[in-house]
Design a protein around this nucleic acid. Structure first.
Lengths: 232, 232
DNA sequence: TAGTGGTCTAGACCACCGG
DNA sequence: CGGTGGTCTAGACCACTAT
């Protein structure tokens, strides 16, 4: 009786099922790809493809010579897409708008120098802007742009296009660090966001580089009730 | 003059550079894999491997018959690992501890029924627990566990092992939804967390399923100053 | 240094979907 | 329907690292 050939998804699901069911425990070693391939009646590259998926999902760890093991410290791995704010607002069916609050060339404050992984200060364009959804505050962003890396930004009319959109469309990055945390609205932020003073607001901080050159770091303060969700 | 063979990373980087530099714009169509392979002097499967990477990163979209296009709505894609809380605390060099505050079998409240995508109510074990780092509050979790899916949980001594750790180690999931948002500490939470009333706290909500069966939904309220960062 | 996973190839066939 | 990406194979060689 010949067994059916397996697709890489079937192979992945079979191995995943072994892990999910507890037949394999964290730290356990799996058979070599070649043995799995023979046992499952497929090519080794099919096993390899399945393992690539499991490895990226954080379920297994693979090492040359060391073999494949069930990841000993299971983690929940989540992926988020953060779109251009205008797209995000429009995807909600709302009308997008934005206001430039301030734009000024300033030396980078110490926190920004640190975010950029620099030692010496850096010339930056500081931009403060408010994104609106149906006329209501949606995100308040405080942004520092490294003018040495992005000199053209000085010629951009930031009342017409947000720095967020211009940068994403014109200055792709090779590295991006993100962090999320919560702050209380101080009186000024509360006024700008139309929130109660002291309201809890989710902050999304993002710093981008191209190669080793810093592009921008931004502190996006979201409106009350804002939620970030994994993409479905 | 023979050109060097390209590895899939080189192919990926070459295409990415075309996108990052603006030589290719959002929406633009790329040559077919076969043409790229000939042009770059590699096998089609090498181009395929490179495209797989670019596609997962959200840089390009690929469709059979439709070809490969630069993604028209660029997004920032971020991946987070959320470890078992004990591991997270210990990785910071702190001593881990936890306190079981409450455990009770309750019918699922409407919000939980909704989170589980159910229509009928569900028997749940409600667990409230505090994770500690060096004796200080770190995360307060409010958790509902679907006892129909995980009946064994009733026999677990939740003062010895946290429900968080027991579930992650014993009940792997096939689907996980996450959301992040900010709340203000109400008086009770403030007291438990040792925070000022009204303090802004980051909340991580997580719901997991195995197949279509709900496992657990948890509201993890983090201590003041907690930050979530992309893995490096 | 030997054993394991990682990559690459050439070729074949399949699955999807746009015109 | 035809053109594109997706998958699978068998085999070769390479790169890393546990022992």
């Amino acid at each position: 009786m010949a067994e059916a050939r397996r697709s890489w998804r079937e192979v992945r699901d079979a191995i995943r099922a072994d892990i999910l069911s507890g037949r394999l425990s964290p730290g356990d070693r799996l058979p070599r790809d070649e043995d799995l391939a023979r046992r499952l009646n497929c090519a080794r590259s099919t096993v390899q493809r399945a393992m690539q998926d499991l490895s990226q999902a954080g379920l297994v760890e693979r090492r040359r010579r060391g073999g494949t093991r069930v990841r000993p410290d299971p983690v929940t791995r989540a992926t988020f897409d953060i779109p251009i704010t205008r797209h995000e607002v429009e995807a909600r069916g709302a009308r997008y708008g934005h206001q430039l609050i301030r734009a000024a060339e300033l030396p980078a404050p110490p926190a920004v120098v640190a975010a950029f992984d620099l030692h010496s200060p850096e010339r930056t364009l500081y931009v403060e802007a408010l994104h609106l959804a149906d006329g209501r505050p949606y995100i308040l962003e405080e942004r520092w742009i490294a003018t040495r890396t992005v000199p053209e930004i000085r010629a951009v009319d930031l009342t017409r296009i947000s720095a967020n959109e211009w940068l994403v469309l014109n200055r792709p990055y090779s590295r991006c660090d993100l962090r999320f945390y919560a702050i209380q609205a101080d009186p000024r932020v509360a006024r700008l966001m139309g929130a109660a003073p002291g309201a809890a607001l989710l902050v999304i901080e993002r710093t981008t580089w191209i190669g080793s050159e810093p592009i921008t770091t931004v502190r996006a303060i979201t409106a009350p009730g804002y939620q970030l969700q994994t993409r479905t």
